[in-house]
């Protein structure tokens, strides 16, 4: 059975993608990069949905709907996050996440 026709392949792909995204979120100081990493994680989730839909679910459309939803949510999230980043930039003249520390306890 070819590798591209197995569930596990896609799950590994999704895990790798997710871990890359997580690493980006946790390590990058640039907010835009963090945002991109979040998108990666969302895509990993989408891949998971599609894979399970393709190999396990009886109905062919459920996972696709979930993936479409994730795309829509990601678009909205990107818009909001970008506007927050812009606002932050106006205030701090920087988009370095470590400079947003006014709420330090």
């Amino acid at each position: 059975m070819p590798a591209f026709n197995q569930l596990n392949t896609y799950l590994y792909l999704a895990v790798i993608l997710f871990c890359l995204g997580l690493y980006g979120v946790l390590s990058r100081r640039n907010l835009i990069a963090v945002l991109i990493s979040v998108e990666l994680m969302l895509n990993a989730a989408s891949i998971n949905f599609m894979a399970f839909n393709r190999f396990l679910a009886p109905h062919p459309a459920v996972g696709q709907i979930a993936a479409l939803f994730i795309m829509a949510v990601a678009a909205a999230e990107a818009a909001i996050a970008l506007s927050i980043i812009v606002a932050l930039y106006r205030k701090l003249k920087s988009i370095n996440i470590e400079q947003a520390n006014e709420l330090r306890g």
């Binding site: 946790l26 996440i97 006014e102 709420l103 306890g105």
Partner: peptide, 18 residues
């Protein structure tokens, strides 16, 4: 006491969460 948890290091908090 609890305000020490507010480190203002977003990614540290995220790491903890993860």
């Amino acid at each position: 006491f609890l305000s020490f948890l507010q480190t203002a290091l977003l990614q540290l908090n995220l790491l903890f969460m993860v």
